[in-house]
Amino acid sequence: MTTVRTIPDLAVPEFLGVKSRSRWLSLLLRVSVPALILLLWWYSTSHGWVSTEVFASPGQVVQAFWELVNTGQLWDFGLASLRRAGLGVGIGVSVALVLGLVAGLSRLGEELVDATVQIIRVVPFLALVPLFISWFGVDEAFKVALIAVSSASPMYAYTYLGVRSVDRKVVEAARGFGLRGWRLAVGVVVPSALPNILMALRICLGISLVGLIAAEQVGATEGIGYLVTLAQQYYRNDYMVLCIVIYALIGIGVDLVIRLIERTAMPWRRHGTAAG
């Protein structure tokens, strides 16, 4: 055996896997951009680059915050809004989840539900405010209904998408093992579509804040959406900025909670490789 063959230059293979970073570095990187923005805010207001008439300084906002805490209003407002948002999102998300599952799983369901929902989905929910007021009055029912409608549409869209992108072979296999309807949905489809559903939940919780602000503009004396109205009425810049800060804090809270749910509800994401 004396075939002459040219030997290619050998090298260590380029690493194609996922590089894992230390948790602390990852956390540091995550925090760094918001921290930078905060620093910029503090610096620009304290050095007179930006007038505090236009944008209140961190100090003023913290003071406004303590005011709210000391009068007990923050607690009352938060609780009132939480109740409305919780109820509204709960109702909207449950209905949308069921509709999304039905449309995603069955042909008949898709034909009946999808086109209709997609049409309704385009209607901005804020356009429903006058109509809802005339139906429900200006009390709680109106507010909850508005938030429910606002959160239903992203939930429907993402659930439908998620169900549609579940591996059809897996669904076929599960059908073959006798899983049908409800048990197929709970046992196979929902867990597989969970990434989409949790993404939808993030968006729903964000949109419910918009719903809160719109709903609490009328007939409300408390709530974090009402806080915006209040700040506007009294032309208090510190309160205006405080509202933004509170919403940002809620955003962080929502993000943390969803991350926690993702870790506990989707443990398979942290294990294993593409090879399976």
Binding site: P8, D9, L10, A11, V12, P13, E14, F15, L16, G17, T273, A274, A275
Partner: peptide
């Protein structure tokens, strides 16, 4: 076996030792 193949295709890094492969795999 799969682990060995993944080392050769660069999808995993060895804990110790050297892996040398040709450019086109």
């Amino acid at each position: 076996k799969t682990t060995l193949l993944r080392l050769l295709s660069g999808l995993q890094l060895p804990d110790a030792g050297t892996v040398l492969v040709p450019p086109v795999r």
